[in-house]
């Protein structure tokens, strides 16, 4: 963001192509189909990223357009964050009322680092793993990584990979595991209801929806807890990542990769 942004606004080829993609994909609109307990949502943004990618491999998009697109993603995410800000503002009183249980379970989102970071490192991923596992990779977290490391950094690629997976399969995956875990573990459905709010409307809807299907008697409580938790994740997720999630991920990554190097050199010596 701090580097020079020179005359990207003059790249009319890029902006016209994006405008055409947007008009086309919004005309197609949202479609959905159900798979088991979950719903697969096909949103215009999904078609947009595929069309953009496909156009990159045609003469319509040259290397220059592709380079110029990067700062626009960062600025676009900034507009998105402003929009999320004005969604949170009016509901601040409810968030304050929502209580300590809701607030503290937000720290559970750090569980992603503890479980997923070792897996990523074990699979041999390098700094991509920081972008991948520092959070659940929704829009504010993507913005944070772009802002801090840049779009074409390993961290940026990592966060985009998880973001894209979440965008495409997040709802159906959350729908599947929430119903499964709530019926197969001793944890209370209301705990899973709070856990359903991870900062994505569609994932929250899918996860809490299959909870309701499994425990219809608790429908209202489940939906209320999930909604409040989702609101909290939306409002605190960014700050959680900035001040806790990302620093912990960086530190753990350093510790884990250091040990790994130590182990391999040791085994070579032996």
């Amino acid at each position: 963001m701090k580097q020079q942004l020179t005359n990207i606004w003059k790249d009319w080829r890029l902006h016209t192509v994006v405008l055409i993609i947007v008009l086309l994909t919004e005309t197609i609109g949202t479609h959905s189909f159900t798979v088991g307990p979950g719903v697969v949502l096909l949103l215009p943004m999904l078609y947009a990223i595929i069309m953009g990618l496909a156009l990159f491999f045609t003469p319509v998009i040259k290397d220059k357009q592709s380079k110029n697109a990067e700062p626009l993603i960062v600025l676009g995410v900034t507009v998105l964050i402003a929009k999320i800000g004005v969604i949170i503002g009016p509901s601040l009183p409810q968030i304050i009322e929502a209580g300590p249980a809701l607030l503290l379970q937000e720290f559970g989102n750090l569980g992603t680092i503890l479980i997923a970071l070792p897996v990523a490192i074990l699979l041999g991923l390098k700094r991509e793993s920081i972008g991948m596992t520092h959070s659940v990779a929704r829009e504010p977290n993507v913005g944070l990584i772009m802002d801090k490391y840049g779009f074409n950094s390993p961290e940026g690629r990592g966060v985009m990979a998880i973001y894209i997976f979440g965008t495409v399969f997040g709802a159906v995956f959350m729908g599947l595991i929430s119903g499964f875990l709530a019926t197969w573990t001793p944890l209370h459905p209301l705990s899973f209801a709070m856990a359903s709010g991870i900062g994505s409307g569609s994932m929250m809807a899918a996860a809490s929806g299959s909870l309701v299907a499994a425990f219809p008697d608790m429908e209202n409580e489940i939906l209320a807890f999930a909604g409040a938790s989702n609101l909290l994740s939306l409002s605190t997720g960014l700050y959680m990542s900035i001040f806790i999630g990302l620093p912990i991920t960086e530190r753990l990554y350093q510790i884990m990769t250091k040990n790994k190097k130590y182990n391999t050199s040791e085994s070579k010596g032996a």
Binding site: I50, G52, L53, I61, A69
Partner: peptide, 15 residues
């Protein structure tokens, strides 16, 4: 807002 962001992202991801 997300549609144009991902349109730009698709174009940028190509590289």
């Amino acid at each position: 807002l997300t549609t144009p962001i991902l349109a730009y992202a698709g174009i940028a991801i190509g590289r």
